[in-house]
């Protein structure tokens, strides 16, 4: 469905997309996971025709992006990261305007607009103005505006940024429904939980490069030799992370509130030394758990950096 070959994009002396090659099959929810500034939005902007690539080749459907961008635009829907809606037009008029740009008209247009407003849970607010909406409702309207023309491929660029958990769940469920209806979804996020829960395939992107690609399980298998202990302290005592890091087998230590996250080499049995550190420093421990590998750990292992600030 989408074939990307050695794609690159440079802005002056910054390489935002660096030699990216991907193949996205029809009917998948493809996740692009990476921290802010990794190059996800630039990649999406190239794929939807907003930016010309510096090098490489992209084919969407059977169309070459350099030669047939008009045809490509007719089959894609874009939900941008920034809220791109008109506050002075009603929700209905917003969706109607954007759908009309794709040639949808007459009764079909009216039905499509109402269907998509119902799909995003905004049917009752159709005649209301977005300035009266909550952040979550605006996000859903932002999504509705990219769906009313029934696109085959949907690009969603961080659609859940800055919204409440309820709206986030609604959006994630909507993405799954769209996929069930046959849409191919390219979903960028820096929330690993989202990528884990909805994406059938994930590419981890950092500094414009794809550093790993596969299904959720395939990616986690990259760190099957690693484990994570989560130590819960009674209160947030000061922890000497450097001292903990010097314990054999400890790869990374991080503290958050009263919790200490310790990534380990699974092949080394160092639990006794770790517990000894807390006892030796008279730090009362409430709980100790062994965490299963997740995409956050995958990213940390591959890049040495966190995916996002907690």
């Amino acid at each position: 469905m989408i074939r990307i070959e050695e794609l690159s994009k440079r802005f002056a002396d910054v390489t935002a997309v660096n030699n990216v090659s991907l193949f996205i099959e029809k009917g998948t929810i493809y996740g692009l996971l990476g921290p802010n500034g990794a190059g996800k939005t630039t990649l999406i902007n190239i794929l939807c025709g907003l930016l010309p690539p510096t090098g490489g080749k992209v084919t969407i459907g059977n169309y070459d992006i350099r030669k047939n961008i008009h045809q490509i635009k007719e089959i894609i829907g874009v939900i941008p990261q920034d809220m791109a809606i008109y506050e002075d037009l009603s929700a209905y008029d917003n969706v109607k305007f954007f759908a009309s740009l794709y040639g949808v008209r007459g009764q079909e247009l009216k039905e499509s607009v109402m269907n998509v407003l119902e799909f995003t849970g905004l049917k009752d607010a159709a005649k209301k103005y977005p300035r009266t909406f909550s952040g979550g409702m605006k996000r859903r309207l932002n999504i509705a505006c990219g769906l009313a023309h029934n696109p085959e491929i949907i690009f969603m660029d961080e659609p859940t940024v800055g919204i409440d958990p309820q709206s986030r769940n609604h959006i994630l469920e909507s993405v799954k429904k769209l996929n069930k209806q046959g849409c191919t979804v390219i979903y960028t996020t820096h929330y690993m939980e989202e990528a884990e829960s909805i994406c059938s395939k994930i590419a981890i992107i950092d500094h414009g490069k794809i550093i790993a690609e596969g299904t959720n399980e395939e990616l986690k298998s990259l760190i099957k030799d690693k484990s994570r202990f989560i130590v819960s302290m009674k209160t947030d005592y000061p922890v000497d992370t450097e001292k903990l890091s010097r314990i054999q087998g400890v790869l990374h230590v991080e503290t958050l509130g009263n919790k200490v996250f310790i990534d380990n080499d699974r092949g080394v049995n160092n639990l006794t030394q770790i517990i000894s550190y807390f006892i030796g420093n008279e730090i009362p421990v409430n709980n100790l758990e062994l965490d299963v590998p997740n995409l956050e750990m995958v990213f940390l292992t591959l890049t040495g950096r966190k995916l996002r600030d907690h």
Binding site: E74, P80, A84, Y86, F98, L101, Y102
Partner: peptide, 13 residues
Amino acid sequence: SLKTLNRIYTAPV
């Protein structure tokens, strides 16, 4: 400023 211009350009306009 509303970023709707990019949205318009992602349509066949």
